[in-house]
Simulated assay, not measured.
Amino acid sequence: MGADDAWALQIILKAEKLLKSVKVLPITTVFGTTSTIRIYKGATEGFIPVDPKMGQFYGRNGFSDIHFWQLHYPNNANEVIQQKNVVEIIREMVMAEWRFNVMGNVDCVNVRLLNEVERIAYSNNRFYTPYDAFSAAAFIFLDTCIQYQRTYNATLELQGQRTRGQMVFDRGNNNHNVNIIATVNEDEIKKILQWTASS
Results as ranks from 00 to 15, higher is better:
75 N>P: 03
67 H>N: 15
83 Q>V: 01
90 I>P: 00
104 G>M: 06
77 A>T: 06
77 A>M: 09
84 K>D: 01
68 F>N: 14
80 V>R: 09
54 M>A: 04
68 F>W: 12
85 N>K: 15
70 Q>D: 09
78 N>W: 05
100 F>Q: 02
60 R>G: 05
82 Q>T: 02
71 L>F: 09
77 A>W: 02
107 D>K: 14
70 Q>L: 11
66 I>T: 06
94 V>N: 04
58 Y>E: 04
68 F>M: 15
101 N>D: 10
89 I>C: 00
97 E>K: 10
68 F>G: 11
71 L>T: 12
98 W>F: 07
87 V>W: 02
102 V>F: 01
98 W>L: 07
64 S>D: 00
107 D>Q: 12
90 I>N: 01
81 I>S: 01
103 M>S: 03
88 E>R: 10
97 E>H: 08
103 M>L: 10
75 N>W: 02
88 E>D: 09
80 V>W: 01
77 A>E: 00
86 V>T: 03
65 D>P: 15
80 V>E: 00
105 N>F: 05
54 M>L: 02
76 N>S: 10
71 L>R: 14
59 G>T: 00
64 S>V: 07
102 V>T: 10
107 D>R: 15
57 F>P: 02
70 Q>W: 07
87 V>M: 06
98 W>N: 06
76 N>E: 02
95 M>T: 15
95 M>P: 15
75 N>M: 07
67 H>F: 15
106 V>K: 06
62 G>V: 13
99 R>I: 02
93 M>G: 13
76 N>K: 11
95 M>D: 07
65 D>R: 13
98 W>G: 06
56 Q>K: 07
67 H>Y: 14
76 N>P: 15
89 I>T: 00
55 G>M: 08
70 Q>C: 10
92 E>F: 04
107 D>W: 03
99 R>G: 01
95 M>W: 05
91 R>F: 01
55 G>A: 07
60 R>L: 09
95 M>S: 11
102 V>M: 02
98 W>M: 08
58 Y>F: 11
107 D>A: 11
104 G>D: 03
67 H>W: 14
98 W>D: 02
61 N>K: 06
77 A>P: 07
66 I>A: 08
78 N>S: 09
58 Y>S: 13
101 N>H: 09
72 H>A: 09
85 N>A: 13
106 V>H: 04
106 V>S: 04
